[in-house]
Simulated scan of single mutants.
Amino acid sequence: MTSRLAPLLEQFDFASARLTERLSGPVMDSGDGLGIEVGPLTDEEYFWEPVPDCWSVRRQVDGPGPRATLLAGAGVWGRDAASYPHPWPPPFTTIAWRLSHLSEMLSIRADHTAGGHALTRDDYLISGDALGAVAAFETGATAWRNALLSIDGAALDTVGYCTYPHGSDVDEPFIDIVWWVNQEVLHHGAEIALLRDLHRAQGRTIAGNAGG
């Protein structure tokens, strides 16, 4: 592995492990080195819509949700999507949407870096439950990490080294794509963690109101 890639790979490993621990437990890093107990992501959390008209993961037979024009993915389930121009303001998205987006992106980018350079969103199987979704994220993260380990220093500066068809990859040096993937995992991971916290807090509020 080239030394220029090392800090980016270390950051990716940190972000991926942090999100996996936050989703699976039994403990997660609190940020100050202390372990906090956390249970595995539930289907209720996975599909929770905290506001009206969320984008989410749905059965293909049910069709897309509000303001979506299609369900991306293969198989029984799909993720709400729309052709350009996308709806504005952007729809609020569920944990299911955000997690499947991350897993799909990692898996397809890995293929377009060190695989067959053929996979698209139409080929990707969307998970219809929390357990499968967490496993899919781990699979995608491993595939992307292995793809990174396969490259040399020259690849980092090569424009279009990754041929991922759903972004600007073909116009960017590969090192910029590596950075971009890291920030996707970091910021979506933080969003998913916050949604878990809000779901837990909502449950406490409902219980408190019921007892009062």
Rank of each mutant, 00 (worst) to 15 (best):
A81H: 12
S24E: 13
D197C: 10
P66H: 07
W88C: 10
A6Y: 04
A68Q: 06
P64I: 01
W179L: 12
S3P: 15
H166D: 14
A201S: 12
G128H: 02
C162A: 07
L148K: 00
A15D: 11
H86R: 14
D176N: 15
Q60H: 06
T93R: 11
A201H: 07
S24D: 13
R121M: 12
D157F: 05
L41Y: 00
V51N: 01
A130S: 08
R98H: 13
P50K: 03
E191Q: 15
E21I: 02
L148Q: 00
E104C: 14
R79K: 15
Q11T: 14
V181M: 05
F47L: 14
T163F: 00
N182F: 01
G35F: 09
G78T: 09
V57R: 02
A207P: 11
L99G: 04
V76G: 06
S103P: 10
H117G: 10
T2I: 12
Q11I: 10
H188C: 04
E44F: 08
Y46A: 06
E172P: 01
G65E: 00
F14P: 06
H187C: 10
A81P: 03
D32F: 14
H166Y: 14
P26I: 08
P52Q: 07
R109D: 08
L106F: 06
N182K: 01
L149Q: 07
N146W: 05
G153I: 09
R67L: 07
L131G: 15
D43M: 13
W55Y: 08
P26W: 02
V181T: 05
E172N: 15
V38W: 00
V134L: 07
F12R: 02
A74S: 15
I36S: 08
A118E: 13
R22L: 10
V170W: 09
L70K: 15
S127C: 15
A114Q: 05
G33C: 08
L99T: 03
T163H: 01
R59F: 00
Y124G: 13
S100E: 15
H101V: 09
G189P: 04
W179Q: 11
L5H: 00
A154R: 15
F14E: 14
L106M: 08
P89M: 09
R79S: 14
T120F: 08
A155N: 02
A82Y: 09
R59G: 13
